[in-house]
Computed example of a mutant assay.
Amino acid sequence: MNIFEKITNSYHKKTPFVAYRKPNEAVISGFFMDNDSLFFVDDFSEKGFVFAPFDNQQKAILFPINNSEFISEDLSFDAIKFKEKDFCNNDSSQEQHIKLVDKTIEVISNNDLKKVVISRKEDLEISDFNLIKTYQKLLQTYQNAFVYVWFHPKIGLWLGATPETLLNIENNTFKTMSLAGTQVYENTKNIVWKSKELEEQQLVTDFIESQLTGISSNLKIDKKETIKAGSLLHLRTKVTGELNENSTLKTLIRALHPTPAVCGLPRGNAKKFILANEFYSRSFYTGFLGELNLQKNKIETENSSLFVNLRCMNILDDNVSLFVGGGITKDSNPKNEWEETVSKSKVMKRVL
């Protein structure tokens, strides 16, 4: 039985599982539980697969390695040809989102907020959803992303293809990144970034540096670079360092999550604004997920590999919820911000 058959069986039996492929790798891995017990992370010393919400005051879910069958195999399936479906944008959603962006700009202009990430949920009805085909389309289309399917009968079904690493750590050496700024790829090498996107990305980088300075050493901040994620381009800055002896993985995660790339600055005030003003609950969108303290064999050291949950969808029966957002600063243009969310939603609509 290959891993796709394992996914199908687990989903039909309504038992928890996650299958995932890391960026630019040819291996797919999975955790498969045999009952619907719900486990939570306590202090991030646990071992398994973690699925954490945006709100870091809520509990993160764990598929413990000791309560799961772990599978890892070479990724192989026939190429899928598919046509993109047309989905109509909701005029009321556009008006609602633009009003919220207007309000956000006004608040930023009149207090100490520098940036707030505003998001929205887009609900679609589909009649012919096929879990395996949809997941394989994600794998095929977004090879440089962390592509996953996650299910727990008490929580729901999630799929995603995220371009953003929250954290990789082995022993005390970690890698993270700041990722911000978006534009549609126009099939050209002459890429120009506007001051708004450059400023937004620098805010994220500065935040990460300030958060890590007190708990790490040998911090290295790379130069900005442009990366491609599907049909979109983003600005990225890689960051590496070593965790201090008196700091823990929990300390590091709390320092980073949620980053300004998904929340805003100052983080506490931006988070309060989001929770009070967005028209829905983000749940696991803009949370994080991935391997927690895994040791693949006796020789390897423990490694955690965590990704921000972007470009994702939540599926219930024939209803699909897509989640998209963008960073708002004092220089944002509400109509442009709406168009950015439309471009981002197309990333996931391509596979439906």
Rank of each mutant, 00 (worst) to 15 (best):
L139N: 04
S68N: 06
F70I: 13
E106C: 11
V50F: 06
C88Y: 11
K83Y: 08
E73I: 00
F54N: 01
V117P: 05
F49P: 03
A52Y: 08
A26T: 15
T141V: 07
I108T: 06
I98D: 02
Q143R: 12
N66K: 13
N111M: 04
I108C: 07
N144F: 10
V117M: 08
P53L: 02
E125S: 13
K83M: 05
L75V: 00
D78F: 07
I132D: 02
K115I: 01
Q57C: 08
D112N: 15
D42V: 14
V117F: 12
V27A: 09
F51I: 02
I108Y: 10
E106Q: 12
N110S: 13
L75T: 01
D34F: 08
E125Q: 14
A79I: 06
D128N: 14
E106M: 11
D102Q: 12
K121R: 13
D91G: 06
D78P: 01
Q58D: 00
S45F: 09
A79H: 14
K114L: 13
T134K: 09
Q136L: 00
Y142S: 08
L62M: 04
I98L: 05
F49W: 10
K115A: 03
N110T: 13
Q140W: 00
F49V: 01
P64A: 04
I61K: 12
N110R: 12
I108R: 08
L75M: 10
P64H: 04
D34Y: 07
F51D: 02
N56G: 04
N111W: 04
D34R: 11
K85L: 09
E122S: 12
V116E: 04
V116C: 04
S76I: 12
K121V: 09
N144A: 13
N67V: 02
N89G: 09
K99N: 13
D123Y: 10
L124T: 00
V27K: 11
N35K: 10
P64N: 02
P64D: 03
S76P: 09
Q58N: 08
E84A: 07
K83C: 02
D86K: 15
A60V: 06
L139P: 00
D34I: 12
F82L: 03
D55L: 07
E73G: 01
L113A: 00
F77M: 01
A26Q: 13
E106Y: 14
D43W: 07
I28A: 05
T104Y: 05
N144V: 06
F44S: 00
K137T: 00
I98F: 02
F40W: 10
V117S: 01
